[in-house]
Design a protein around this nucleic acid. Structure first.
Lengths: 128, 128
DNA sequence: TTATTATGTAAGAAAACCTCACACGTAGTT
DNA sequence: AACTACGTGTGAGGTTTTCTTACATAATAA
């Protein structure tokens, strides 16, 4: 549908995203570094995030809080590439060993996080 | 409804608004100076606009393009005050003379504007 | 002509953001 | 215990963006 372009429109600077997702700039840049999000850039090289980006950041946060590490999140959410075709192609689902590792980690979920501003998926219903 | 708080949430820096509404920073600040919009501010005094603010800016732009001047726009849209009660109280509708002036101006609509990124009201359906 | 209106533009300062780079706590490994 | 890897904190130094203030200008109104 056409709302995809709206949801993928680069609108928010990192400061706004920090507040909306309750993440530090360091965290957000780190996730980008790992290819999980690929915010657009202004002419002056400032990051501009879309609603989709923010949704993804919330999912990342969620998974991290559940004990999943970067590698696991990459397998689950895929990289920030917009190429859907490639995304499908490169989806050999989790391997046995990967799955075991993930389950092992989720098993021992640590509860060291608390004040969430937004939960994953919330942004889907954020506007209108 | 509850989406009011979402639509009035301060999210966008002036740069983003400039692009969305196709207005210069000067214009936006000028309209604020006249009390037509009242964007929130960051701790560091940067303006943060809400979706409602942007909608209003688009309406202002629209009216200006139709030849209505600031005074007229103030009467039509009211100031940026969130006080709805006051807004209703101070609505003696347009006076005869005001109306005549406005109509006269709208009559001779000048067509010196062209590349609109968004039209007034568009943002209402912008998300989701 | 002169005043007003809406906008352009420039200067100087401050906030926000950028990219490194290094530090640190925790957890797992040797 | 010592070492390593991971996710994040923090600081330095630099660039971009935004801020206020002030003056200029084209078009309209008086």
């Amino acid at each position: 549908m056409g709302s995809d372009i709206r949801r993928s429109m680069p609108l928010f600077p990192i400061g706004t995203v920090m507040q909306l997702a309750d993440l530090t700039a360091r965290q957000i840049r780190y996730y980008e570094e790992h290819g999980l999000v690929s915010p657009a850039r202004t002419e002056g090289n400032r990051r501009l995030f879309s609603l989709n980006d923010i949704d993804k950041l919330l999912e990342i946060k969620d998974l991290l809080e559940q004990g999943v590490n970067m590698a696991g999140i990459k397998r689950i959410l895929g990289d920030g590439t917009k190429d859907e075709a490639e995304k499908r192609a490169k989806k050999p689902d989790l391997s046995e060993s990967d799955l075991k590792k993930l389950l092992k980690q989720e098993m021992m979920g640590n509860g060291k996080y608390s004040k969430n501003n937004l939960r994953a998926g919330d942004l889907s219903r954020f506007f209108r």
